[in-house]
């Protein structure tokens, strides 16, 4: 099975140490660039963490839109004969700019910054952060065994009860 298929069929597990490391690195990136917000998400659209000053950001929705945006351009890269996906996307607004980069195969980084922040600076610091994140994430694993600990019959029964309660059955 090729790596893409293998990763599609297994859980991606992020440990507490890696999560804390990610948070620290994106906090540094946010401080270095003066970004309004930095969002880190998984490439299938799961939000991981966010730092910054934007209040009330719908993190699940932003992560989903960014991941699918990135996947769509990866498909275009493939159609255009690029061997790997485009490394970043840049969207320029009247007040806010958005810089989206892939971090390896599994993750995406979003830097949201005001238009008076220099793009070159954002690119330089983001590249440094991506290199540091890539090193940190080497130990993030695709292991079903990690899920085994709590995904059992008891979990399924409790989930069923919670669904009945939440969905008002």
């Amino acid at each position: 099975m090729d790596p893409a298929k293998e990763q599609n069929s297994q859980a991606l597990v992020l440990s507490e140490d890696i999560y804390n490391g990610i948070t620290e690195l994106i906090q540094d990136l946010s401080a270095s660039t003066g970004a309004k917000s930095v969002v880190f998400c998984e490439s299938n659209g799961y939000a991981v963490t966010q730092v910054g000053t934007i209040k009330g950001l719908d993190l699940p929705a932003i992560a989903s839109l960014a991941a699918n945006n990135f996947s769509a351009t990866a498909r275009m890269a493939d159609m255009l004969g690029e061997k790997s996906s485009f490394k970043y996307l840049y969207h320029e607004g009247d007040n806010i700019n958005l810089y989206i980069s892939n971090v390896g195969f599994d993750f995406i980084l979003l830097v949201i910054f005001e238009v008076d922040v220099a793009l070159g600076m954002v690119r330089i610091y983001t590249k440094k952060t991506i290199n540091a994140l890539a090193g940190l994430l080497q130990s993030a694993s695709h292991k079903d065994a990690q899920a085994k600990q709590f995904l059992d019959a008891e979990f399924k029964n409790l989930l069923s009860e919670e669904l009945n309660r939440s969905l008002n059955f």
């Binding site: 659209g45 989903s64 979990f155 409790l158 989930l159 939440s166």
Partner: peptide, 22 residues
Amino acid sequence: YFDFMQLELGRIKGQKPRFNLY
């Protein structure tokens, strides 16, 4: 392209289950 919403349930065995619906 797609529609999206996330459903988040209360904690079960310490875990918070989330379902991304597309």
